[in-house]
Each structure stands twice: as structure tokens, then as C-alpha cells.
Design a protein around this nucleic acid. Structure first.
Lengths: 203, 203
DNA sequence: GTCTATAAGAGGATAGAC
DNA sequence: GTCTATCCTCTTATAGAC
């Protein structure tokens, strides 16, 4: 751990403020509708200054995703530390966190179609590293949970992994919230149930 | 049924060609990344001519969605006509069609964030009518399936409805396809299983 | 590194001839 | 209703002073 000068600390603090704003705006409007002007305005600096910190809009989005994956990895560590928790318990815990975060408007989401963004992300080492690490950790839990007989063994582990990742942008949360009939906790419980138990009745 | 002049038939045929193109482009790139120039180029007419048929980009998207909902309603009728099919069977059939259509790149999808689009759709009578009719038909099946004990009674019917609608834009299909490890039929089966049976093992 | 000002270009929409 | 040409706004990105 290198000691940081005051200058460097201020620099990092500002970048953190930028990334937090980007995360929120990405969650609110998505990548295409988020404008760099808007980010600069909300952070309270000029757009040109923003471009001194991040070279492009894509880099902004990547930084937001990296920070979010860092939070997810913290949740993974936290789940790992719970004594006596099964692999399924851990997967449920991280999924619940994902749903809560999205419902709170703090889960940045990226369009799967935008190719310029996609290429930028694939080229971003920090992003790819985070994604790989998260996939590895969750993948191990999935295989374990299948061995435990807790998750459906007929499903390919990667299909389960993708299904869990997809909870980060599940539109059902927003629909239920819009209805106004359920509280956040209830909504999360409902989606947890549809995800793990399915729509069909259990015997 | 009024008789149509040759002129009117040509007019309708052209509008149908436009809508088909829009549907495909919406499925490929989404609303924000689809450009009107592109639509005009693919249809093979000038952009200004396009605007004689549809007054705005939002109207184009709405027309595409209306046509797609029409197809969905046809599927509903087809499922209705199957003798001896339970409510669950019918819901599974329409869900399967949705997944197949999306996987084939023919399911136009709309961003939930874009407010200008959202307002245009809400103001579009044909769109709202189709949506209502589809919701009513599926809603009736859902209630019936719950009464049959085939669908989880603890879930609010609207949550089930939203979950089924959300299959139209489920990113898991694309992820699995990208992996290249599974054929379309297998992918549909996998997602059908996660949707109705859930990720957890069944006893 | 922060600012103001502006370049550069994409994209939605329209004018006006035919 | 179709075309060409154009308008106008929005948005990303940069130049250059301080």
C-alpha cells in the first residue's frame, strides 16, 4: 500500500464522485440516454474536466461497472464468511443483494446490443478481470449446489450463472414497483421465488 | 370488410414492409440505436417518404409492437383451440413461442427507460388495446392455472404475467446462443425450465 | 486540472419540386 | 407519395487560456 499525497487523495475522491454519479445515471436511464453533459453537471465540474479523468463515455461506463462488480465481490466475500451456509444459501444471498440493489436504483445496466460499448468493455482489463472473478466464484458455488442436490442438475451451470446475472436487469422488479401494490421487500421475495422455485407449483 | 383499391393495397403492402423492417431492426439493435435513415435505406425508400407513412420514430416502433402483439394474439388463439390443453399448457405454449421468436431475432424490444417512447406508446390506442387484450387473455389463464394447482398460488397473478412478458427480452437466450454450445431448441428448453421449474432442484 | 468556447458529426424531422 | 436537399438540435469530444 503506497502512501498517497493529499493531491492524489483529492483526485481519487473526485473520480469516485464521478463514478458514483455515473452508476446512478446508468441505472436510471441506461448508457445510450445518459449524456456526458449530464454527468458533468451532476458532479459539478465542466465536461472538459471530466474528459481529463476518463477518456470516453465508454470508459465512464466501464468504471461504473467495475465499481459495481467490486461491490458484488464484497458481497461474495461476506456470504463466504457466514458459517454453515450452503452453496445454495450463498447464491441466494448474492441474488437477493442484486435484486435489492437494482430496486434501489443503484445497479448500472448496460445494453447488450451496443457494439462500441461492448468492444470498449472487452478491452478494459479491470472490467474483464472483475467479470471473470465473479463468474469463477459464482460458478464454483453453482457446481457445489448441484452436487448437493440443491440446484437442478439437469441445467448447465453456465445457464444458471447467466440466469443469476440477468437478475441485475430484470424488468419485473420495476413493473411490480410501478404497480405500487408491494413494498420493496415483498417484491424481492416474489422475484426470488420465481427465480429459484419457478412459476409452477411445488409438490 | 371494405374492398380496397389497387392503390390502397400497394400502400398497405408498403407499410407492411416498413413495419417488418422496423421489427427486425428493433430486435437487432433496440430503439435508441435504430436510426430512421437505416430503416428507410433497408426498405429502399427515402426518409421523407417514410415520414409520409409514419409521423415519428416512436410511431414506427409502436406499429412494430402492435404487429408483434397481433402475432402473439394469434398464438393465443391457436393455444386456445388445442383440445384438452390445460391453462398451464397454454401458458407454456405462448411462452415457448415468445422464446423462439426472440431467439430468431424477430422479437422487437423496447427500453423501459425511454420516456418519450413510453409516452408515445401510452397514447397509441392500437398499442394499448393489444396490450390490454393480451394481458386479459393471459391473466385468465394464470388465474385458472393457479386454481388448478398448476402454478404457485402464493405468487400474485400480475407477478406471473410480468415474468412471462419479460421472457420476450430475456438476455439469457442471447448469452447461451453466443456460447455456441447449444442449439436453439435446447436453449428454449433450458429457459423454459428455469422459468417454470426454477433453478432449485425439484423433489 | 479546471474552465469557456467550439469543432465535428450524427440523427430526427421538414421544405419544396415533381 | 416520392424524391433531393436542408435544417436544427443534441451529443461527443477537443482546443486553448489560466
Amino acid at each position: 500500500m503506497t502512501k498517497l499525497s493529499f493531491r492524489q487523495k483529492v483526485h481519487l475522491a473526485r473520480e469516485d464522485a464521478i463514478v458514483s454519479t455515473v452508476k446512478r445515471l446508468l441505472a436510471e436511464k441506461g448508457f445510450d440516454l445518459m449524456t456526458v453533459d449530464e454527468v458533468a453537471a451532476e458532479v459539478g465540474i465542466a465536461k472538459a474536466s471530466l474528459y481529463k479523468h476518463f477518456p470516453s463515455k465508454e470508459a465512464l461506463a466501464a468504471a461504473a461497472m467495475v465499481q459495481t462488480m467490486g461491490l458484488a465481490l464484497q458481497q461474495v466475500q461476506a456470504a463466504q464468511a457466514v458459517p454453515g451456509a450452503s452453496a445454495l444459501d450463498k447464491l441466494r444471498a448474492i441474488t437477493r443483494w442484486t435484486l435489492q440493489t437494482q430496486l434501489a436504483g443503484e445497479m448500472p445496466t448496460l445494453p447488450s446490443e451496443n457494439s462500441t460499448l461492448r468492444n470498449a468493455l472487452i478491452a478494459d482489463k479491470a472490467y474483464m478481470d472483475g467479470l471473470m472473478q465473479l463468474s469463477d466464484e459464482l460458478g464454483a458455488w453453482i457446481v457445489q449446489a448441484q452436487a448437493d442436490g440443491a440446484l437442478n442438475r439437469a441445467l448447465p451451470p453456465e445457464a444458471i450463472l447467466y440466469t443469476l446475472f440477468a437478475r441485475a436487469c430484470d424488468p419485473v422488479l420495476g413493473f411490480l414497483k410501478l404497480g405500487g401494490q408491494y413494498g420493496d421487500a415483498q417484491i424481492v421475495d416474489i422475484v426470488m421465488s420465481t427465480c429459484f422455485d419457478g412459476l409452477a407449483a411445488r409438490a
